[in-house]
Lab assay of single mutants.
Amino acid sequence: SLSVDNKKFWATVESSEHSFEVPIYAETLDEALELAEWQYVPAGFEVTRVRPCVAP
């Protein structure tokens, strides 16, 4: 099958004044980091952490 098993990760994104967490959907932690950097670094943010979303 061609289905992709995307998992939810939380990326911590920082600017000079703010820090916030955004959801990233990817297959692996490395891919989540790449996606977060691709989305947020060009906008002037720094991705400081990516972690798996742990269900309660």
Rank of each mutant, 00 (worst) to 15 (best):
S15H: 05
L33M: 11
L35I: 13
A26Y: 02
V50Q: 00
S16Y: 09
P56V: 12
A55G: 12
E46V: 15
S16A: 11
P56C: 07
S3T: 12
S16L: 09
S19W: 12
R51P: 01
L29E: 06
R49L: 15
K7G: 06
G44H: 01
L29V: 07
F9W: 13
A36E: 01
A55W: 11
R49K: 15
A32H: 00
S19I: 12
L35Y: 09
T48Y: 02
E27P: 10
L29A: 08
F45A: 03
E21V: 10
E17S: 09
V47K: 00
F20H: 03
E37V: 13
A32T: 00
V13Y: 05
V54L: 08
E17Q: 08
E31G: 06
A55H: 13
K8S: 05
R49F: 15
A11T: 02
T28R: 03
A32C: 06
A26N: 00
E31R: 13
Y25K: 03
R49I: 14
V41D: 03
V50F: 02
V47E: 03
F9S: 00
K7D: 01
K7N: 08
R51V: 13
R51G: 06
S1K: 07
R51N: 05
F20E: 02
E34M: 15
R49M: 15
I24L: 04
W38Q: 15
V13N: 00
E31M: 11
V54Q: 09
T12L: 13
F9P: 00
W10A: 03
R49T: 15
V22F: 05
K7L: 09
H18N: 08
A36V: 06
V50T: 02
A32W: 03
V22H: 03
D5Y: 12
Y25H: 04
F9Y: 09
V22D: 02
E37I: 15
V22N: 03
F9N: 01
E27C: 06
K8N: 05
S19A: 06
L29G: 04
V54K: 09
E27Q: 14
W10H: 03
F45V: 02
A32Q: 00
K8W: 15
V22W: 04
Y40I: 04
A43Y: 14
F9M: 00
V13S: 02
E34Y: 14
P23E: 13
V47Y: 00
S3W: 09
Q39R: 08
